[in-house]
């Protein structure tokens, strides 16, 4: 996947991540509601990367599967990792100061959601929303 890269270390970077994702979603021909869902999911994940992952990198690009076109976004950090994934997905569970909707909420907004993490090993989350 060729793609855009955004360094994630600040609030402003989360906004940049949203803009990059929006542009790709438009390019992929996603409908407005689908664009909004994807961009919102990426906003949650990018913020998690900044706050919980200690910063990281977002890569995003178009993906194709037969006639379908989608947008794939990966947020990667080398932070503490997630010890209890099941709990992390529960609505209302938070270790930060958020609502605890970010993780589970983001998963509901995309079609594919893949997490690779282990304590001390960082976290890599890849999501895809298809058109």
């Amino acid at each position: 996947m060729s793609g855009d890269e955004v360094a994630l270390s600040s609030d402003e970077d989360v906004v940049r991540a949203r803009h990059v994702t929006r542009r790709l979603a438009v390019e992929a021909g996603l409908r407005l509601v689908d664009q909004t869902k994807l961009v919102t999911a990426v906003s949650e994940l990018a913020r998690n990367t900044v706050i919980h992952g200690g910063g990281g990198v977002l890569t995003a690009g178009l993906v194709h599967d037969g006639p379908r076109t989608g947008v794939r976004v990966t947020c990667q950090d080398e932070g503490p990792g997630i010890a209890d994934l099941d709990r992390a997905f529960q609505d209302g569970y938070t270790t930060g100061n958020g609502l605890g909707l970010g993780f589970g909420g983001a998963r509901r907004l995309v079609h594919d959601f893949d997490v690779r993490t282990a304590p001390g090993q960082g976290t890599t989350i890849t999501v895809v929303r298809w058109g």
Binding site: V33, K37, T40, L109
Partner: peptide
């Protein structure tokens, strides 16, 4: 609030 935002917000759980 835009319709797409409203739909997304509810699905997000907010």
């Amino acid at each position: 609030m835009r319709p797409a935002v409203a739909i997304t917000l509810v699905e997000l759980g907010l």
